[in-house]
Amino acid sequence: MPQGAAAVLRHELIGLSGVFERNVYLVRRYLWWDVAFFVWTIANTLTIVFIGKGIEATGGDIDVERITTQLLVGAVVWAYLGVIFEILTETVAWERWEGTIEYTFMAPLSRPIHLFGMGLFAIVYGVIRAVLLFGVVALFFDLNLGQADYLAALVVLLVASISFLGIGMMTAVLPLISPEKGTQLGFMAQGILLVISGVYYPVSILPEWMQWASTISPATYALDGLRDAILDGDGLGSMGDELWPLVLIGAVSIPIGLWVFRIGEQYAKRHGKLKRSG
């Protein structure tokens, strides 16, 4: 193999495409499982979004359309974050289950590229699912979304995804350290992140300490930005308050995520946990 930065970069990009390629194969092979999971997600989202109409039916004086859209955005972000965390956690968990973990982790592919490959696939797959979920659930309601700025919403979601990847990398290593509990701890992190970020309610109703915590959660800014873009039609020009914190948190969380994963991998190699049976 020729030496030099260009050759190394080429090798890494081919490796990254391999990670992406493998996940495409898996989606194709588990297509019906994916369809079933998507139907479940739609049903789950509907149970949340119908709450808006339910409040009105029980005598509440609310702007049903606005509440419904707010709930829909929250549910879609929850589902999106779930996909991102699940795929990143599978970096270890699925490989351990299939028994391929040793082969993948002994391949000459740098860990950051390996994780970025998983993250890239998670974002592409997650965005497709989020768009489909939003579209399908919106059909159940008489929503007036004519003023929505979908491009701005997409940009907010993509910028937020950088931070989500960083946090996902931190949780992805958990199954390596604790094969039995690690995956559940990842779901726990996802839940906490959304609870403090105002997933179905304004952050202002939370206890003060949770409001403080919400200021360092990227989901807070993602939810704000998405709701502004879809409910009020805000464009990217007026999204500075959401985009800059997201960029900042992303710039911090990615290196921390990689560092945490590296520490976890070293621990696993020290204690013999980097193997199929845990």
């Binding site: 391999g18 990670v19 898996l26 092979r29």
Partner: peptide
Amino acid sequence: SFFKKMSAVENLSYAARF
């Protein structure tokens, strides 16, 4: 050790990419 739902070609293909 393989991704058992995937074919031989698929398993070898992504592994070679690494």
